[in-house]
């Protein structure tokens, strides 16, 4: 009796250990949210800096106590939009090629290439951008430097390729064969079938890929930091303007910032965090909607 009881107790204890381990993810998420928000909201609660001037300011000069992030926000949005505009069509068409047109050998090869592209650390994209893209942009740019919105957009467009390709490809290949056969039976060509039947059927999966791509582009730090220029002020007015996305603002100055300056870097993190959470929720909803249908 005693032995069985002890065995049961042991089972129960271990189960609870497993439960605690599973909860670490939740605890981490809560802790991250708490620490970033706690530090980031401090300056506004204690009135050491006004929230309004933080959100609408277009200058970041810690030396003269000016901390505005509007121009960074605009820079982040422009860079992401540009990257999506260039990267997404290329990515979707590549996914179409892998899923619909390529033979199994060629498809495998390209898939391997895409995986490799996904595995290259972001710093190396930055190094590539700095070594190739920036000098080329400088050649056509009226500005004195090649670090620019355009260079950032190009680097980010490359970086979102693997994310969008792999998710679009998965969702394209889950479209039932019957859809295609039905379309062929109606006399449609292969290409017509792809564009009129398969892609619309895989729409929600492709959307998920695109939104995850947006998430990656907005959150990207190291690659962007090397090619964006990081100016201390100014809303970008052309694709040759330098930009300073939210992420690089944090990474650039966190090492030496202190006091209100440091807290406002956390505030920058809060803005970024809210942005990313909105994206996460959207993806979650999309995936659920797809499962529902």
């Amino acid at each position: 009796m005693e032995a069985i009881k002890r065995k049961k107790l042991k089972e129960k204890i271990v189960e609870n250990i497993f439960l605690i381990c599973a909860c670490v993810a939740v605890i981490s998420l809560l802790a991250i949210t708490f620490f970033v928000f706690y530090n980031g909201l401090k300056p506004f609660v204690s009135n050491s800096y006004s929230l309004w001037s933080f959100l609408t300011g277009v200058e970041w000069r810690p030396g003269s106590n000016l901390y505005g992030i509007l121009y960074m926000f605009v820079g982040s949005i422009f860079a992401t939009l540009g990257a999506i505009l260039i990267g997404v069509p290329v990515a979707i068409l590549t996914a179409v090629f892998i899923a619909e047109l390529a033979g199994s050998k060629v498809g495998k090869l390209i898939r391997f290439a895409v995986e490799l592209l996904a595995g290259i650390p972001s710093v190396l994209y930055g190094v590539f951008g700095l070594g190739i893209i920036v000098p080329y942009v400088l050649k056509i740019s009226p500005m004195a430097q090649g670090e620019s919105l355009l260079a950032t957009i190009l680097v980010l467009a490359i970086m979102i390729l693997p994310t969008v390709i792999s998710i679009s490809e998965t969702s394209l290949s889950t479209v039932p064969m019957e859809y295609r056969e039905g379309s062929y039976a109606l006399g449609a060509s292969k290409i017509q079938t792809i564009f009129r039947v398969v892609i619309p059927a895989a729409r929600s999966g492709i959307m998920t890929g695109v939104i995850l791509g947006i998430g990656r582009a907005i959150g990207e730090t190291m690659a962007v930091m090397l090619v964006c220029g990081n100016p201390i002020a100014g809303i970008p007015t052309s694709i040759f303007s330098q930009i300073r996305p939210l992420t690089t603002n944090i990474a650039l100055e966190m090492g030496y910032a202190a006091g209100v300056h440091q807290e406002l870097l956390y505030s920058t993190g809060v803005v970024l965090f809210i942005f990313i959470m909105i994206i996460n929720f959207t993806v979650n909803k999309l995936v659920k909607a797809k499962v529902g249908s």
Binding site: A22, C23, A25, V26, S28, L29, A31, I32, F35, V36, Y38, N39, L212, G215, I218, G219, E220, T221, T247, I250, A251, M254, L265, Y266, G269, L272, F273, I276, M277, I279, N280, V283, N284
Partner: peptide
């Protein structure tokens, strides 16, 4: 909740993890 938390963690950019690591 656990699944959602894991998904959210996967979507957070690494600079935010850096901020948290620095603060905590």
């Amino acid at each position: 909740i656990i699944r959602f938390a894991a998904e959210c963690l996967a979507g957070i950019p690494s600079i935010i993890f850096g901020l948290f690591g620095m603060a905590f």
